[in-house]
Design a protein around this nucleic acid. Structure first.
Length: 331
DNA sequence: GTATTGTCACCAGCTCGCTT
DNA sequence: AAGCGAGCTGGTGACAATAC
């Protein structure tokens, strides 16, 4: 069997080296030598997305000249994601060593190659510098509150209300749909579902935490500093363009953030509501509608993606249907 | 007084059918 | 065939009335 060429690098250095290897062990041996990475505890992954190369099959499946990252024991690689890198940079001011590392590798990347992504990354980095992210109250950053009602005292409060408003909108659209139903039986059943939604929404604070940076990490969609990353179009795993924004940083950014959308993967009007209707119409005796399932689809990040406007695809989300197996629960 | 709620006007993108 | 616009979809924020 012949050998296959690769480009390899270490996690902390963007300098790449060429190496050819016959199999996984050969690759580890040669790579570790070139990169001066200790063989013990070393792991290899794809630079692109961090997938670990840990089997012979995987090694054979790799296309020639794949870019691989050699990880020292304990090191991690989450993919060639500039957005994430900048995020860690912005989130780590209290750790000067880490910050220095990140800044250097970022600048190294930008200096060595000037692909659109790198220019984009640089722009993000520069844009992120002169602002007022840390300010939280009206007193600290009055300009941010320009044009907002007097009752708002903090940025987190404003952002939380914004998220709540969006969730409320989904609820009232659902309510409107139900009240327009012809079939009286379906109407009654779905009104009961709405009655179940209410306390649950209230209990969850209408999911205002999605946008509240002061919320618990698991609840919020942003970082502690208020950075949001685009989740990408409904039918992709991630955002190819690495959109990010911090609406807490300035009034302008707050305005731009309002063009970001919470996108229902399984669509509300085209799919969820008609499916609820269908489920109600053909509800078997002794069963009741699984309102929690529909709640998740309508109001939670199980089905909602936060997307920048260009990642908000308006076409019908073909292939994204409700799961009929989850329509009912036993009484 | 603030929090909740519904209403309203608004924007952008897709599809379809009509006109040119 | 291309262009236009209505009417649908996906969303948004402002604001006034109501509840607490």
């Amino acid at each position: 069997m012949g050998s296959k060429p690769f480009k390899i690098r270490a996690a902390n250095d963007t300098q790449k080296y060429g190496v050819a290897a016959q199999d996984l062990n050969d690759l580890i041996a040669k790579g570790c030598k070139v990169l001066k990475v200790p063989i013990k505890g070393c792991k290899i992954c794809l630079q692109q997305d961090g997938t670990l190369i840990n089997s012979r099959e995987f090694f054979q499946a790799l296309p020639p000249l794949s870019v691989l990252v050699f990880l020292r024991k304990g090191e991690k690689w989450t993919g060639d994601d500039f957005g994430k890198m900048i995020l860690s940079l912005l989130e780590a001011p209290e750790d000067p060593v880490r910050k220095q590392q990140l800044t250097e590798s970022l600048e190294g990347m930008i200096a060595k190659e000037s692909s659109p992504e790198r220019v984009h990354a640089l722009n993000l980095y520069l844009q992120s510098l002169p602002d007022n992210i840390d300010a939280e109250t009206r007193e600290e950053d009055p300009d941010w509150f320009e044009g907002l009602e007097k009752r708002y005292k903090t940025k987190s409060q404003v952002m939380a209300c914004s998220a709540q408003g969006r969730i409320r909108g989904y609820y009232s659209k659902t309510k409107e749909y139900v009240s327009n139903l012809e079939d009286p039986v379906a109407k009654i059943i779905l009104k009961r579902v709405l009655e179940n939604f209410r306390p649950c929404l209230k209990n969850n604070g209408y999911h205002g935490d999605y946008f509240r940076r002061t919320a618990k990490p698991k609840k919020r969609l942003c970082t502690q500093a208020g950075w949001f990353v685009c989740h990408g179009p409904y039918n992709t795993k991630t955002c190819q363009d690495k959109h990010m924004i911090n609406p807490y940083s300035s009034r302008q950014k707050r305005a731009v953030f309002s063009t970001w959308n919470l996108d229902h993967r399984v669509e509300k009007s085209r799919t969820i509501l008609p499916s609820m209707q269908q489920a109600a119409v053909s509800c078997p005796k002794g069963k009741q509608l699984n309102w929690e399932y529909f709640y998740e689809l309508l109001f939670t990040t199980d089905n909602l993606k936060l997307v920048e406007i260009s990642c908000h695809k308006k076409e019908a989300h073909k292939g994204y249907e409700c799961d009929e197996k989850k329509y009912y629960t036993s009484k």
